[in-house]
Design a protein around this nucleic acid. Structure first.
Lengths: 345, 345
DNA sequence: ATGAAAGCGCTAACAA
DNA sequence: TTGTTAGCGCTTTCAT
């Protein structure tokens, strides 16, 4: 009762262990009769193969590893800010893994660390995963991707195009920022402030580019003074919003590069007695807080769980078929319109 | 280069495989000289033992599993509400595991499911974890705890006292609710509304009890009409707040059993043009959203990451020493005072 | 204090 | 189509 192994099942079904293995793995060349007998024994005994033993015997570990930025993640935890990215990633990836008999483990490694490679190799040695999911900013680290590829570990890069060096699953940040900006333009806004994200992340640049795209496209002259730097933190959002809203000719709308800086803007506006949406406000990420704020924030929703699900599916595919040339997968974002944006009065 | 095994290390150090194993596991009876030689070889080769092989050979898997409620978790993911509990749990447990060379995997199993036992046994068979962390409501499931104990799997129950049936790590929800209520009483409030949590969770009852305790202790008559039912969802919070605030003699303060219902109250108040903190508001959980709302909410912070860290430490301790009688561990909560509470005017 | 050999539960490779 | 055998990389006996 305590430990049911493949041997017990084989004995109960009166077949060889290899036959049980074949049935468990859906391999061909087993008569229906034997399949039935094996399955009956499996059910009766409650047999579930040991992951460790499968890894030892075969070539698969049924394990995927997601690599996240250590500093960022821990800071978010410590400060109570939460890690919506990880949450959504788990959502997509875990459920996909589960559906295929895989498990996902996530690991934190310091992005800038000089011995990042050593750390990652240690993870590979200990876990021997069937694939690695890289999240930003690791996904931007070409050297890392190449190291993994050299070691024959399939890689998916989340948030950036893989361009042949690993799979890529991503959204179009530039187009998203443009759409958000267009939304404000359509409401009649012309003086639209922009709070930038941390330059550590590729997406930050793209969002700024998208903002510029939309303004240019609408024939609105870009006022560089309306572009304030930020680093995705609340504090930087407070500073940026403070600068933008202190101006005499302050913007009538603001696009913030993430939710936290947008909520900071909400606070600053409240302090300055500027009502939102008298000041229209759009944010990026659509994390839980922005639907609960008063008013709810219009926000760009990233398809994080969808990207993660796709990432897991790609790796599982490679692991099963042994094959798969790296491909790129663009997933759609969505602009969620809420109460923080209104027509210019 | 691709796969460094214990054999390579043994060869490089000129010792037996078992000696390397001894050094890696800090076992006694190895001369300093050999230890040095082994360590040198380990470093030079970048050797890291394979978890799967360790599990196969020895009695430990270096793996902990956390069991979470499936429905709840997935609903939170789907609706974009986020899973702060899981986030904080990962925070505490993962970092602790990491520090001891363990890994943590979390699994979702349906709490009410008739074949919960089968599901859990399947997890045990596949993963053979060195211990299980149970989160609410699983941690309240005595039959489950007993099944695990019978199978010699060490268990920690989070959020409830273990009382000898598994380890217990928890906070005093009743005292926390009392403290929150006392905070409001001290501000001069006497008509204090209470929005209850889902009766599925033991903590809901305790929070209500604590509310009653504080009122009784202050000699305030308990008005049952000021106690509104809820189930932890935003919608239920809207309903409850609506009921409470529609009354002619409406409460001057409200204690909500979680953040989401408190934020719902904030919305309802805003709609009714009641300013917070003209209406004082206290919530439970201190999830990320409540520090970012305007105003920030006074809230009871649960020591989730601390509980999880303790849970992992306990299980790792058992796994290493082989023994450890179940013990109970009470961790402190904290009342975070923010802008949503003010003296009665 | 050190080492040799025997598994752990699977799957890959190879018979039959 | 089915079964047999040899590992996988460790730790656990059990010698020495």
């Amino acid at each position: 009762m305590s430990k049911v192994t493949i041997r017990h099942v084989a004995a109960a079904a009166g077949v060889a262990v290899k036959t049980v293995s074949r049935v468990m793995n859906g391999e061909p060349n087993v008569t229906q009769d034997l399949q039935d007998r094996v399955n009956k024994a499996v059910d009766a005994l409650g047999y579930v193969p040991s992951m460790a033993a499968r890894r030892m015997g075969g070539s698969r570990s049924y394990l995927l590893v997601a690599l996240n930025d250590r500093e960022n993640t821990i800071n978010n935890w410590r400060s109570g800010r939460g890690n919506d990215w990880i949450d959504q990633m788990l959502h997509g990836a875990m459920l996909t893994c589960e559906a295929h008999g895989y498990r996902m483990l996530f690991e934190l490694v310091e992005a800038g660390s000089p011995d990042l490679d050593r750390k990652v190799v240690a993870i590979l040695s200990a876990l021997q995963p069937d694939g690695i999911i890289l999240t930003p900013p690791h996904s931007q680290n070409l050297a890392l991707v190449e190291m993994l590829t050299r070691r024959n570990v399939p890689v998916v890069r989340m948030g950036v195009a893989g361009e042949g060096v690993g799979f890529g699953v991503f959204m179009d940040d530039r187009a998203a920022a443009a759409e958000a900006t267009r939304h404000l333009l359509q409401l009649g806004h012309r003086r639209i402030g922009f709070i930038a994200g941390s330059p550590r992340f590729e997406a930050s640049r793209q969002r700024l580019d998208g903002y510029r795209d939309a303004l240019t496209e609408a024939g609105v002259t870009i006022d560089e003074d309306l572009i304030a730097p930020g680093d995705f933190t609340f504090e930087s959002g407070v500073a940026a919003a403070g600068t933008l809203l202190a101006r005499d000719d302050r913007p009538t709308a603001i696009l913030a590069s993430n939710d936290e800086m947008a909520l900071a803007t909400l606070h600053v506006a409240s302090r300055l007695r500027i009502r939102v949406p008298d000041l229209s406000l759009v944010s990026f990420d659509d994390t839980p807080g922005v639907r609960l704020s008063v008013p709810g924030l219009t926000s760009i929703r990233q398809p994080i769980s969808e990207m993660a699900a796709k990432a897991a599916a790609l790796l599982i595919g490679v692991s099963r078929t042994g094959e798969g040339a790296p491909s790129d997968h663009l997933l759609p974002f969505a602009l969620e319109v809420r109460g923080s944006t209104a027509p210019l009065t």
